[in-house]
């Protein structure tokens, strides 16, 4: 359905005026320079709320002008002077992109995307406006569900379970004769490759000298 365009009406409250001329639908002729911003709000896809029209409002410049939407979603904001306006659809549940509407002194409309950083950038959007819900607002955190895998891969649990396994399973493996053999071999290998111990070196360094001297003295004694 096409949005109903209500034009500002000039009323000349004057007795002698020709009444049929009192209504003038041409906006540009109005001295006050008041314009109408029109558009349509596309209802959100999931129509769970029955009266979304009540929940939805149109804010121009953060509530300087407020528009209300009709049953079919169309809206019109009347009596707006020339200037640049940010038109927002305010709905507590659905997010809509704001649009900047510029009305020049000749009554020409231009609608473009709002860019607060590069304010001079122009990405035009069609006018009359067509506002579509981007997504539903996600206000809430999602509660974590208790999952077995989360529990098992918890480092604490792993730390508890691994030693338990070592304690419970390893002794059983030990009882197995084959593994015993294997283990023995491993220990033998370890022994074979044993390096000369540091303590021995130290003993030889510090303790060794004195002992040899002592034994030599004893040898001499014995020969006499």
């Amino acid at each position: 359905m096409k949005p109903i365009s209500f034009t500002s009406i000039l009323v000349i409250v004057c007795v002698f005026a020709n009444v049929s001329n009192a209504i003038n639908s041409v906006e540009e002729d109005i001295g006050s320079g008041r314009y109408v911003i029109e558009g349509r709000v596309v209802p959100p896809e999931e129509q769970e709320q029955s009266n979304w029209q009540i929940q939805t409002r149109i804010h121009v410049n953060g509530g300087e002008y407020i528009g209300f939407i009709k049953e079919d979603g169309s809206f019109a904001i009347h009596n707006v002077p020339t200037g640049s306006y940010v038109v927002e659809v305010v709905n507590p549940d659905y997010m809509y992109d704001p649009v900047r509407v510029e009305i020049n002194s000749k009554g020409k409309y231009r609608a473009r995307r709002v860019n607060y950083i590069q304010t001079s950038q122009v990405i035009q959007v069609p006018y009359p406006l067509r506002m579509k819900a981007l997504s539903r607002f996600r206000y809430f955190q999602i509660r974590e569900q208790w999952r077995m895998t989360d529990f098992l891969f918890n480092p604490m649990v792993i730390m508890m379970i691994l030693p338990l396994l070592l304690i419970m399973v390893l002794p059983k493996m030990m009882n197995d004769p084959e593994t015993k053999e294997d283990l023995k071999q491993i220990t033998n290998l370890a022994k074979m490759s044993e390096m000369p111990e540091m303590s021995e070196v130290f003993t030889n360094l510090f303790g060794g000298g004195t002992t040899t001297k002592a034994s030599k003295a004893k040898q001499i004694k014995k020969r006499q």
Binding site: E197, M198, S199, E200, F202, T203, F206, G207, G208, T211, A214, S215, K218, Q219, K221, K222
Partner: peptide, 30 residues
């Protein structure tokens, strides 16, 4: 010789002890 073995027996345990001591002493450094 006999005499020597006798005395070496004594010094050997001593040595072992010292070795053990060094073992302990060097533990932290290791």
């Amino acid at each position: 010789n006999a005499n020597y073995t006798e005395s070496s027996k004594e010094t050997d345990s001593n040595l072992l002890l010292i070795k053990k001591l060094w073992d302990v002493a060097l533990g932290p450094l290791k």
